[in-house]
């Protein structure tokens, strides 16, 4: 078994099942993979279970309580919510049925996922911490959305972190972008 395959077994127990009792090998190299894509997991980050074919990896929460994560979704052609990558970008750039006044979306800019050209934008909003309390606080958060067209569909990688921590945590997202491989 290759090192990479051993790592895959260790990190994807929800994507496919091992036979009862089979123990995952110790991870030698952290890779998150599913049938649509794979990427390397930054040190200190953790994969979370998902059931919809997307991937979610968690970083350490910020001291202000805001969550840190990267989500990766694949939208195959004709797959439902978005017709294509342009529709995804337009949804965020145009008027939305639900959008708080404090949510500010930046313009679309060219960027890269590994060596592939992509498009991205940032969005500033707030998280409510603790939620649903008579004393909730608004904590500013920033998201970076990167949209990669590939084959007949497209991929969206979203990095979410506290605005105060965004720059410090951004290199982890860059590692994910650099290692991202669509399938």
């Amino acid at each position: 078994m290759t090192r990479l395959a051993a790592a895959l077994l260790a990190f994807s127990p929800w994507a496919w099942g091992a036979a009862p009792g089979r123990k995952p090998a110790a991870p030698e190299e952290a890779v998150v993979s599913n049938p649509s894509f794979e990427f390397r997991l930054p040190k200190g980050w953790r994969p979370a279970p998902t059931e919809d074919g997307s991937a979610l990896v968690l970083g350490q929460a910020a001291s202000d309580g805001a969550s840190t994560f990267v989500s990766v979704s694949h939208f195959p052609e004709g797959g439902g919510e978005y017709k294509d990558a342009a529709a995804y970008l337009a949804r965020y750039q145009g008027p939305r049925p639900v959008k708080a006044a404090s949510t500010k979306t930046g313009p679309v800019k060219a960027c890269r996922v590994g060596r592939r050209p992509a498009k991205g934008f940032t969005e500033d909003s707030v998280e409510f911490i603790p939620p649903r309390s008579t004393d909730t606080k608004k904590v500013p958060v920033r998201e970076e959305h990167v949209v990669l067209e590939h084959g007949r569909g497209f991929y969206v990688l979203v990095f979410h972190a506290s605005s105060a921590d965004f720059a410090k945590r951004r290199p982890a997202f860059q590692r994910i972008l650099d290692s991202f491989q669509p399938k």
Partner: peptide, 11 residues
């Protein structure tokens, strides 16, 4: 990598 994923997906 692809072989590993495919074989386990089928399982």
């Amino acid at each position: 990598l692809k072989r590993a994923v495919l074989s386990f997906s089928l399982a």
